[in-house]
């Protein structure tokens, strides 16, 4: 094993401390008995129980989850289709432009995405609320799905689709019976990614929201301006839990897929060599 120098240890500790200390503090204080956020007064779960009686927070959570479920699902469908088009039809007109456009939101400042969507909704007279937030989330999460699915498609052996066609399956059957099951892990990872991105988005939601559609991050943000309460810590802890779970599940799925692919490759090599 490599020897760890003091410098290395120090930088790792500092780096991780910087990243995770605030989160750890937040989680710890969500179990604080006292109402004062900075003074520890013993363990308690009362803030979690109080959450259930805070109708405003619950409503916001419900809106957030609906937006996340719906937008992640639509973004997954659209992102997968975009990835298929980009990988499969390498020679269509304007492909470079199209791929650039699909990926632009990855690097676009959220403020700009949010503002331009707002302008669009105003221009076409779309009543702002649940649907505009959902549409906006579909727009910005779709490209993440496209990236994840595209990387899987690049290593996809297209001859299995041809084999299905050859055996009498129509293109539609081939897609659902062969292509989709094979790329399903990547599609699923993409969905999880879109879901978590939507869940904790604040900027784009704020721009595109309307009356009666407040998401959890927006609610938290507005409450924090009046002072941090342990209740907020509690809901944030739950959010962290959900996001962490999503990331872990997605990475396990990805890891499994890689292990599987390595196995396949080894088998293929054994067959040739």
């Amino acid at each position: 094993m490599e020897k760890w120098s003091r410098f290395n240890i120090a930088s790792v500790v500092l780096g991780f401390g910087f990243l995770y200390l605030p989160i750890v503090l937040l989680v710890i204080f969500s179990f604080n008995e006292s109402k004062l956020v900075t003074v520890w007064a013993g363990f308690s779960t009362k803030w979690y129980t109080q959450l259930w009686h805070n109708q405003g927070l619950l409503d916001a959570a419900w809106v957030t989850i609906r937006v996340a479920l719906l937008s992640a699902t639509c973004a997954t469908v659209l992102g997968t289709l975009a990835a298929l088009a980009l990988v499969r039809y390498t020679r269509f007109r304007g492909r470079v432009l199209f791929s650039g456009m699909v990926y632009a939101p990855l690097v676009m400042p959220e403020v700009i995405t949010g503002l331009s969507l707002l302008l669009l909704f105003v221009a076409i007279g779309f009543d702002r609320g649940f649907w505009t937030i959902t549409l906006a989330h579909i727009t910005f999460t779709m490209c993440f799905v496209a990236v994840v699915v595209q990387s899987r498609l690049l290593s996809f052996d297209q001859s299995i689709e041809e084999a299905a066609l050859d055996l009498g399956a129509t293109p539609v059957t081939t897609f659902f019976a062969i292509t989709l099951p094979v790329i399903a892990p990547a599609v699923f990872s993409g969905w999880i990614l879109a879901f978590t991105l939507s869940l904790d988005d604040l900027v784009i939601s704020s721009f595109t929201t309307g009356p009666g559609a407040t998401t959890l991050p927006m609610k938290i943000y507005s409450q924090v301006r009046l002072g941090v309460t342990p209740e907020i810590n509690a809901i944030c802890t739950i959010l962290i839990g959900i996001v962490a779970l999503g990331v872990i599940v997605a990475s396990i799925v990805t890891k499994r897929r890689e292990v599987q692919r390595e196995k396949d490759e080894r088998a293929a090599f054994a067959a040739i060599g």
Partner: peptide, 20 residues
């Protein structure tokens, strides 16, 4: 006539077995 309506079948060089 598309591949799925031809009375021929093909064995692929890579075998193209359905992995799932």
């Amino acid at each position: 006539i598309p591949p799925y309506r031809r009375p021929v079948n093909m064995m692929f060089q890579s075998y193209a077995l359905f992995p799932h």
